[in-house]
Amino acid sequence: MRRLTPLFLIALSLGLAAPTLLAQGRRGGNMWDRLSRRDQDKDGKISREEFPGAGRMFDRLDTDGDGFITKAEADARSRGGRGGRGGANTDQLIEKLDADKSGTVDKREWEALFGKADKNGDGKLDKEELQALLSGRDYKDPAPKVGAAIPNVSGKVRGTEQTVALSKPKRHTVLVFGSWT
């Protein structure tokens, strides 16, 4: 059997390692590792001209808006996962959830937030409620306002055959919504 030369052994080891190295390259290590290769003027930051992606993505990464993406900005994005707005929304959500500021969210805190977010009390969070929760926007009460027409709905009086058209009260009427629980 022919003896394997050291050079051949080195080439073999590199060959076996290559797929791993290539895979790491494709995954990028982290974002700055990938971006720094584009730093043509070697100033330690990535300008809009050096950035390989779309302008929108550049703007997302350039969080201080100075026209350059730095290692710190890229690392922040890498740490935050989706980062950008997603990261900000996650921080907002944690701030809303962690009532006792313990740094963790327990079941009671989660359920309390659900109750607050469930504005119409139907036991479900619809898209509007979730958007309001994540965006932190002031909630706009969708219930009919003072001066608005009474909703055109009717209900049957329990224990009778009488149906009441709520939109046409014969006199001023107090309407109380509720349940036993």
């Binding site: 001066g147 009474i150 209900g155 709520l166 001023h172 919504f177 509720g178």
Partner: peptide
Amino acid sequence: DTIAKAFHGMPDRLFVLGADGKIAFRGERG
């Protein structure tokens, strides 16, 4: 929950329905 949804009345809420067919008072959500 047709009526509750029309008024956004759940879980509990107060309204005053005016004789003129308009909302005279809308309480905050309970």
